[in-house]
């Protein structure tokens, strides 16, 4: 089958700095891919470039065979940003956040039955009880799961997540991955600093360092083993929880 996401010779400059350099990648249907690397290696910029959220200095990206733009079948993909201002200004209920996930360019309002679908998506991430609470009052982990529910409610073929474990406690991280596992077949592209429970979910790893891809292959092969790990290694370390790193 054809690729869901491709990047060819992509360079990205932000504020005059080269953030990504000569990126080539292909994501095929059903793949579960982690984009790994140290802070500042360009991981988040890479998925923003794929989504058309940052301008390319060079090269091309395609999602579902289309350049990001009006023609792209946006309904087939869902994006979970690392941070979201949702609920930070005006109080916003979790249910409203998730229902907003059902908008499309052609239908900028939620379809019929959106409330039921949104409640089901919240239940899928274990948050059905807080549907009517303001997201600002939730914990960081719960907020991330609300954002995941907002993406899952779209029933996407391709899920793109940016650091879903940042600021998330171990129990919430585990629940988040379980929600993805229950989902079954779905192509998934996840930016991660630490793998946490994603180590068992992902199959392929792409490792970035200083804006370049330095490794791409089966997850187990691109991860350093604890014995060979040294300080300059840009690749992520295995860890049991997002916060705790395993001692070398």
């Amino acid at each position: 089958m054809s690729a869901l996401a491709t990047a060819a010779h992509v360079d990205v400059n932000l504020a005059g700095n080269r953030i990504l350099e000569d990126i080539d990648l292909t994501i095929r249907p059903g793949q579960r891919v982690g984009i790994l690397g140290a802070n500042g290696s360009g991981k988040s910029t890479l998925i923003k470039a794929l989504l058309g959220l940052v301008p390319l200095a060079k090269g091309e990206v395609e999602l579902f065979g289309q350049t990001p733009g009006r023609q792209l079948p946006w309904a087939k993909l869902a994006y979970v940003p690392q941070t979201s201002a949702v609920g930070a200004g005006v109080p916003t209920s979790a249910l409203e956040v998730v229902r907003a996930g059902l908008l499309t360019g052609r239908r900028p309002w939620p379809p019929k039955g959106s409330k039921t679908r949104a409640l089901a998506a919240l239940a899928a991430v274990g948050l059905e009880d807080i549907a009517r609470q303001a997201v600002a009052q939730l914990s960081g982990g719960q907020r991330h799961r609300v954002l995941l529910a907002r993406a899952l409610v779209r029933d996407p073929e391709l899920l793109i997540m940016d650091e879903p474990l940042a600021g998330v406690d171990a129990a919430s991280a585990e629940r988040l991955v379980q929600a993805l596992e229950r989902r079954g077949q779905m192509t998934c592209l996840v930016v991660l600093h630490d793998l946490g429970p994603f180590e068992r979910y992902l199959r392929r790893g792409i490792v970035l360092s200083h804006g370049r891809i330095v490794a791409d292959g089966p997850l187990a092969e691109v991860l350093p083993t604890d014995h060979h790990h040294h300080h300059e290694d840009p690749r992520p370390r295995r860890s049991r929880t997002p916060e705790l790193e395993v001692r070398p």
Binding site: L72, A75, Y79, S84, V86, V97, A100, G101, L103, P108
Partner: peptide, 26 residues
């Protein structure tokens, strides 16, 4: 009438863009 689109764009512009909403227009 446009409250959902206006809300979505005001609340999370990147996400709205990745839903295919013409955020500049909104």
């Amino acid at each position: 009438t446009a409250r959902w689109a206006l809300f979505a764009v005001a609340a999370d512009e990147d996400f709205a863009k990745a839903c295919g909403l013409p955020t500049a227009w909104w």
